[in-house]
Simulated scan of single mutants.
Amino acid sequence: MQIAATTRISTLIKENPAAIDAIASISSHFEKLRNPFLRKVLASRVTIADAARIGGCRVEQFYEKLVPLGFTVGSATAPAFAKPKPVATAPEPVELPENGLVELDVRVDIAAGNDPFRKIMKAVEELEEEHTLVLINTFEPTPLLTILQKRGFNYHVVEKEEKLVYTYFWHKTALAAAPETSAPLNTSFDIIQTSFADNIRQVDVRHLEMPQPMVTILSELATLPAGTALHVKHRRVPQYLLPQLQERGFLIAIKEVSPSETDLLIYR
């Protein structure tokens, strides 16, 4: 398999599970890949370049560990290994208010194998404009940084010690409306669905475990013909998928059918 800085860690592991040990040997930051839950949460959303930035290492160190496992480096990236470009850039926290810090410690959730995403987003939604959310975690929450930056937040990450990371989130001005990929009203879903008539591809991911729903959806979109929409049957609104769709130029309409069933209509 040919790899590059943009290759996702989950793709490497799926191709060859030995990649877990190889990557973990690069830095103690990557030991969390041995935890099945953290692997599900992070590996599908983090590229080699992202991981290199988090671990404070070089992309070529990943190549050196992965090539002996049968991976090959793309010719476009083989001649030189530049320092990876950060996924998102955050300013120093000069705008942080001196008072009004709201702490949210999710280390217990992570240790118990529970995804704290909903708890974090609830805290974000309830955050007053003059307050700052302090997320206490065991690692840098890379996917969350991108999501909240697009929702109008600045952030600053401080590694207090190994496996103790404080991430500060505060409003740039006021809490922005949901990103462009956010769901239109249910009535809009029906109108958009009608407009595509028979040009709709169906996929049901309700029976899949994380991260397979997002992997399946992105795979379907990669071969989606022009003028066709993808109708997805899902168990919930896939929050981590929304910024991925925005980056790829897709729009999404969402219709919550029941507490355990959500319809998604994804289109260009």
Rank of each mutant, 00 (worst) to 15 (best):
A222K: 13
F139K: 01
L66H: 12
A123T: 01
Q61H: 10
N35P: 04
E103D: 09
Q212G: 00
L127T: 11
M121V: 08
Q246I: 01
H171Q: 11
W170H: 14
E125Q: 09
A51G: 08
H231G: 02
V46L: 14
V106M: 04
R45F: 15
T142I: 12
H29F: 10
T146M: 11
R39G: 06
A88R: 11
L224Y: 05
T6L: 07
R206Y: 07
T138Q: 15
L33I: 06
R268Y: 11
F37N: 10
V158C: 03
V237M: 01
S219T: 15
A78M: 12
A229P: 02
G55D: 09
T223Y: 07
T228S: 05
G113M: 00
T187W: 12
L175H: 05
L66I: 13
P238L: 15
N199T: 05
I13A: 11
K255Q: 14
M214A: 10
F30W: 11
V41P: 01
T173I: 09
S75L: 14
L221R: 00
L241T: 00
A123W: 05
A51K: 09
F62P: 11
F37G: 00
P143D: 04
L42R: 03
W170P: 05
F169Y: 08
V237P: 02
F169Q: 03
V203F: 03
I192N: 07
F71R: 10
G56D: 07
V157Q: 06
E209R: 10
F30S: 13
G227Y: 04
K119H: 02
R53W: 10
R151H: 04
L135V: 03
K233A: 09
N137H: 04
D198T: 07
Q246R: 11
V108T: 09
C57F: 11
P93Q: 00
I13M: 02
V257L: 13
I23W: 06
R118G: 03
E129G: 06
V124L: 04
P179S: 04
D204I: 06
A123D: 05
